[in-house]
Amino acid sequence: MVPRILKQIRAKVRQRQDVMTLHAEEEMSDDDLSIFDVERSLLTGEIVERPKDAGTGEWKYLVKGNTVAGDEMMTVAKISPTGKLVIITVYRL
């Protein structure tokens, strides 16, 4: 299942079917990351964890990847009911 979801995440990034939460934008700025870093990490990274949100029952995916400069980062994302990829938060490791 995880490889299928990773393919789906990558396709949504390539097709620009993704949205970023305000929290993710703030964290991206705080950690001096760009949208290119987030995209690269999602396109080349791996899912390292798949927790289920206790409140909503939705699956979240923690994708560990690298920035454009090669630094490690984590992206937390989910697939929304509308089919969009929602980037919940991002941070450097």
Rank of each mutant, 00 (worst) to 15 (best):
S80T: 15
L42A: 01
V86L: 15
E46H: 04
L43Q: 14
G55Y: 03
R50C: 02
T67R: 12
G65R: 03
T56G: 04
T56K: 13
V68G: 12
I88H: 04
E39Q: 11
V48E: 05
K84D: 12
G55L: 15
K84F: 11
E49Q: 14
T89P: 05
V90T: 14
S80W: 01
G57F: 06
I79Y: 06
K60R: 15
R40I: 08
N66G: 03
A54T: 07
L85E: 03
I79R: 12
S41F: 00
W59G: 03
V86F: 07
G55R: 08
E46D: 07
L85R: 07
S80V: 05
A77M: 13
V48H: 03
G83V: 09
K60V: 09
M74C: 10
E58M: 09
D53S: 13
K60F: 05
V38F: 03
P51K: 14
I47V: 12
V90K: 10
G45D: 10
V63T: 15
A54M: 07
G55N: 09
R40D: 01
R40K: 14
D71A: 14
E39L: 03
L62F: 12
A54S: 13
S41Q: 11
I47N: 00
G70A: 11
T44V: 05
A69H: 09
A54I: 08
S80E: 10
K64A: 05
M73D: 02
V68P: 03
L42M: 15
V86T: 10
D53Y: 07
